[in-house]
């Protein structure tokens, strides 16, 4: 095992981790703001991926990056107003079941519309090549993807920490009733956060699909690892999701070097240890353990 292979694996893990970060941030801010355990988050990824596929074939990849998250955001607003709002703050078990059911409906609708076959994005030629990074040939697209995710995460953080809406959101995470008493529009802010979190998943759905290819189950394949990420980081914590994502990505990439068969299970082992030792997660607060 050479130093080069560690650098290589580290880079792979970083990029995989960043993809998890972008999906998990949506999951965690939705939980923080709405107290909603969203098992339909993977479905948002899948809708983004398929919308992106159609748009990319017709108009090009750039438009897909806009259309994917936009459609997902609209779908999320509809879902929120039509069903989910009745389940805010309810037992997590009921929320898990409801959103799990919604995920099945989405997955099956995609299967009926697009078929069960695995589909692939074709990238523009200039993105398809490789770049020399740290003395290695590395796929150019993965580098751009990583940089893009860093930029998006920074934007989301600025939105939450620097805008008036962000203020309501942060206050809402702490105490919903207080925000309402003080005249903040918590419902509007909730819907907005839900749409934003969903749109992030939709955006990753478009952006990551050239690497992973897509089928109707893709969303579900990302769902559970994303929960692993937020649980390790701390459910509801923004920087927890960032830290959790990088940890999970690196853990599975470095495990591949030693024992490829264990790359998948290692993240569950990590989650189990965190849950048993520090259930609030690495950066989470301790108040939310009880359901």
């Amino acid at each position: 095992m050479t130093a080069a292979s560690f650098v290589q694996a580290g880079l792979n893990g970083l990029i995989l981790g960043l993809i998890y970060v972008a999906i998990a941030i949506g999951l965690t801010i939705i939980f923080g703001m709405l107290r909603l355990v969203n098992f339909a988050h993977g479905a948002f990824y899948a809708i983004g991926a398929y919308v992106g596929l159609v748009v990319a074939q017709q108009y090009g990849f750039g438009y897909a990056l806009l259309a994917g998250p936009l459609v997902v955001a609209l779908f999320a607003v509809f879902l929120d107003r039509a069903v989910l709002r009745f389940f805010y703050g309810k037992e997590p078990t009921a929320q898990i079941l409801l959103t799990f059911g919604i995920a099945i409906i989405v997955e099956e609708t995609l299967r009926l519309r697009f078929g069960g076959t695995t589909q692939q994005y074709s990238l523009p030629q200039w993105l398809n090549g490789s770049l020399a990074v740290a003395g290695l040939q590395y796929p150019a697209y993965r580098i751009f993807l990583a940089l893009g995710i860093v930029a998006v995460v920074a934007l989301v953080w600025l939105f939450i920490s620097r805008t008036n809406y962000g203020l309501i959101v942060r206050a809402g995470v702490r105490d919903r009733t207080m925000v309402q008493l003080l005249g903040g529009n918590i419902h509007q802010a909730s819907t907005l956060i839900f749409a934003l979190g969903a749109a992030l998943a939709g955006l990753v759905g478009v952006a990551a699909s050239p690497i992973y290819s897509i089928d109707p189950q893709t969303g579900f394949n990302f769902l559970i690892p994303s929960f692993v990420v937020v649980v390790i980081g701390g459910l509801g914590s923004f920087w927890g999701a960032v830290a959790g994502g990088i940890i999970v990505g690196e853990l599975s990439a470095l495990t591949t070097l030693i024992y490829p068969g264990a790359a998948e299970v290692i993240i569950y082992v990590a989650m189990a240890i965190v849950l048993l030792v520090r259930p609030q997660g690495l950066l989470g607060e301790s108040e939310i353990i009880r359901g």
Partner: peptide
């Protein structure tokens, strides 16, 4: 000989190892 599960979509780890080998 890197064994990967049926349905693997991201081969970057294995290919990275191939690249350095």
């Amino acid at each position: 000989n890197v064994l990967l599960k049926l349905g693997t979509t991201d081969f970057s780890q294995a290919l990275g190892q191939a690249q350095s080998a």
